[in-house]
Amino acid sequence: MTDEIQSSADGRAAPGYSYGYLDAQTKRMVRRAVLKAVAIPGYQVAFASREMPLPYGWGTGALHITASLIGPDDVLKVIDQGADDTTNAVSIRRFFARTAGVRTTEATADATVIQTRHRVPERPLGPDQVLVYQVPIPEPLRWIEPREPECRRMHALEDYGALYVRLYEDIAHIGRIATSYNYPVMVNGRYVMSPSPIPKFDNPKLDRMPALQLFGAGRERRLYAVPPYTTVKSLDFEDHPFEVQHWETPCGLCGATDSFLDEVIVDDAGGRLYVCSDTDHCARRRAIRDGSATRAPWRDDTDGPEVA
């Protein structure tokens, strides 16, 4: 009840909700789990996942974390596969604009909290930013060892041999490691972690990132973290070092040669276009190229504070 009064007193968040949607005790529980996750980089901390107003698989775990972090001073960006304008991203931005009264943005540089599904923004993140990943399956050993207690023991003993065998099997069968997304990483030299289903193109960005990275899995009720400046190494072999995807063509819209590209079918005759998956990155590059602005003003703060 106290929370409700506050959120309406704050003026920007809609009345009738707890501030940030979750109740005070749930936020406290999630916050304690987040602190332990930060203290044990890469280790999956169990938390009590609550029912959220969107289904599992739509980012409920990250939503718990964002709701426990976010305050009136924050600026929130949400991306889904790199795009700011997909249904899921728009809905989650609107959700927090309504329940927490936060400002939202599509500009990576302006955001203090970025919730992401399956991409890391192309623009390097700074120390004042927090990146919150939506994670479907947090356990990197899940497809090797289905028993949860056994996975826990393997993590406790640093018994990751089976994971290397799995990567080696790819090499034995087809001559290279075929995993192209959700590529397992070793955090701080101790825990193997699922980076969530980001393309392996993004894996090098996790290493020693100045921003705090938090990962939330709502259905599996686990959250984990990578503190700033922490080593994150993609698993590989000396004779088969980790490498990322490359494209023959630059982005069809902005000409970028260094970003992750999506393939888009553009007509019925098999015509295709490769474009940046990070929509903010692409729009900004085009704005600079066209000389219209150093940034794309029409993309900033388009949602604005919203009152229901």
Partner: peptide, 15 residues
């Protein structure tokens, strides 16, 4: 004075 907002701000400092 304002538990929900104050706890959020202190938590961010702790984090």
């Amino acid at each position: 004075g304002s538990p929900a907002l104050d706890e959020q701000r202190v938590f961010r400092a702790l984090l």
